[in-house]
Design a protein around this nucleic acid. Structure first.
Lengths: 346, 346
DNA sequence: TTGTAGGCGTTATCAT
DNA sequence: ATGATAACGCCTACAA
């Protein structure tokens, strides 16, 4: 077992000084052709690579990005990570991932662990619990210590930093418009409680679309799911809620859901109730994932372009890290959504 | 903007030496009650945290784990990461993720980037291209440099290291047995080319199950998909292949697919051909993901317990890292699979 | 052309 | 009880 070789060892073997080795390897003209070749050959033979940690300490930057997301077993977030990783690697950065698991405490702890020198900056999406508690001190502290943050998707106005979001309002408005244009008279929405900013905005888009069609919203067409209760394993209660929704208002002929899972489950319930899709009732979901594509019928969705979000976020962060001037000039990039029409709509 | 504070700054402010500060903070009894309190108060005020990078350099360990996976937008792999992250964090480690994107070169480059001091050990699943080329020198080198590797799922005999796998053979044999026990007389298999070890083993399980039932395999019941061609966006060709399979042999009354996507697509094709599931034809897939659970009908699958794999892999790696004795004693943990019965089987 | 020394932030050992 | 020094691995300004 040959441990990783260091400059010091090479220097000793070749009987020169460490700095000579260092310079030789970086092809400095200070060093004679002779020694340069000798050193380089030796280094190659022993497969020398500078130690990242030492470089990080010296340069006071690690060339790694910390990513904190609420959940990784999730099509959208994993797409974002893929995007981040793509441009990070291309620009010579590594990606270190922390999961908040939608918990405030884990978010804080994870950020603390990474902020102590391990990374140069954060890319993150805020956990639900944090949004609910509206406690953002950890973000503020991190930023005030000179560590940049880029937020994506679940962002918050209180924090002044770069952001990458989609136009949730416009996206959902488009979707609901589509349903209305397709002739739906009673469009229901299945959304989340309002503390999830994106849920709130998507609900608002729904309302605006109705308004454009001179329709007034009806309370019994709006289902606000408490998704703290809807874990992967407790979807049965969601089904019941949706079933109740359909039974309470049996004129429903269109459903807009703020994520694909809600839409898929709603389709299932509708089918069980004997409705034909898309003849009797049409569905559109938010967030385009595997489920949408492979459901029967395949689901029309609003594509959030997760990978692009990740790419943009990483670009923003790295630009910031590599910018010389210290001017704070934060921007918010808005990614266009796209309605992917499939077979759940006419 | 107050930059992160260091021991040196605290020392200067309090007019003591650096080592006094260091000791005071670690509650050394060498330091007087007085100074200890003074230093600790000051440190707390300025929210002092030791710099991880400096610690890493000093201790020659980073307390971070490098994970290389072929793809992250994938239910199974993201579950594994979740498992890794869970136990890593619990034991004070960070997780840094690299994606090989199924490419040999990216796998090698990613490993090189991380192996230069950034991490203490690897957890990885081999890329398809690497498996195909059978070039494992980068794993060997890494290990010979004293950096431990734990492989999961896609492993290889040539490399001597800790491994976490499932019993692919037994899992698929069970699945096919189930179909046969349910009365299927013509069970087809949709699998991958043999260079993917898991595909090969799952095919073997299929054959053994048939053998147990004194059935002989028929060539026209075996579809080996070249999944280099089956990217997310080119599934149409797969559908055609499966349709051809059904048409060539219209007695098929059971299908075993080596992943859930193949199974879902096969179900779709079957339904389009007018077959009733599970009355006319039954389906079982490998790898339990969102698709299986929410398909119509829901798909019976072999659960691989991805999260548990991740947890076990991380445990194995960290145990190894923290073990004193240098004895090489590699083990292979086999995770039990589980047949999750849903509505695609009787 | 080569080498020395200092520093990145921390801890441990050995003075004082 | 406190402090000076060396070391982790690297780079670089400044000698020699």
């Amino acid at each position: 077992m040959k441990r990783k070789i260091t400059l010091k060892q090479i220097a000793r073997e070749l009987d020169v000084s460490i700095s000579t080795v260092s310079k030789a390897l970086r092809n400095s003209i200070e060093i004679s052709e002779d020694t340069r070749e000798k050193v380089q050959a030796f280094a190659k033979l022993y497969n020398y690579r500078p130690n990242n940690i030492a470089l990080s300490l010296k340069n006071r930057k690690t060339k790694t990005i910390g990513v904190i997301i609420p959940e990784i077993v999730h099509h959208f977030f994993s797409k974002v990570i893929r995007g981040i990783e793509l441009v990070a690697n291309k620009r010579g950065y590594n990606v270190i991932v922390g999961l908040s698991n939608e918990s405030f405490d884990k978010e804080v702890i994870n950020m603390q662990m990474l902020a102590n020198g391990s990374i140069d900056g954060f890319i993150l999406s805020i956990s639900k619990e944090t949004l609910q508690q509206q406690d953002y001190h950890h973000f503020k502290e991190t930023i005030s210590q000179g560590m940049p943050i880029v937020m994506f998707d679940r962002v918050v106005n209180e924090i002044n930093c770069d952001k990458v979001i989609i136009d949730d309002l416009k996206g959902s408005k488009n979707a609901v418009n589509k349903l209305l244009a397709n002739g739906c008279k009673n469009v229901a929405i299945i959304t989340t409680k309002d503390y999830v900013s994106v849920g709130k905005l998507r609900t608002q888009g729904y309302l605006e679309a109705l308004d454009d069609y001179k329709m007034s919203p009806k309370a019994d067409l709006i289902l606000k799911v408490d998704d703290a209760l809807v874990s992967e394993d407790h979807l049965a209660s969601l089904e019941l809620e949706i079933e109740a929704l359909f039974k309470k208002n049996n004129a429903i002929d269109g459903v807009f859901a703020v994520n694909e899972l809600y839409a898929i489950i709603a389709m299932k319930v509708a089918r069980n109730l004997g409705m034909k899709i898309p003849e009797d009732i049409q569905f559109i979901g938010f967030t385009d994932g595997v489920l949408s594509k492979h459901a029967t019928p395949s689901l029309t969705t609003v594509n959030q372009h997760g990978q692009e979000m990740g790419e943009k976020a990483a670009g923003l962060l790295i630009d910031n890290l590599e910018r010389d001037d210290e001017e704070e000039h934060y921007q918010t990039i808005i990614i266009e959504t796209e309605l992917v029409e499939r077979n759940s709509t006419k």
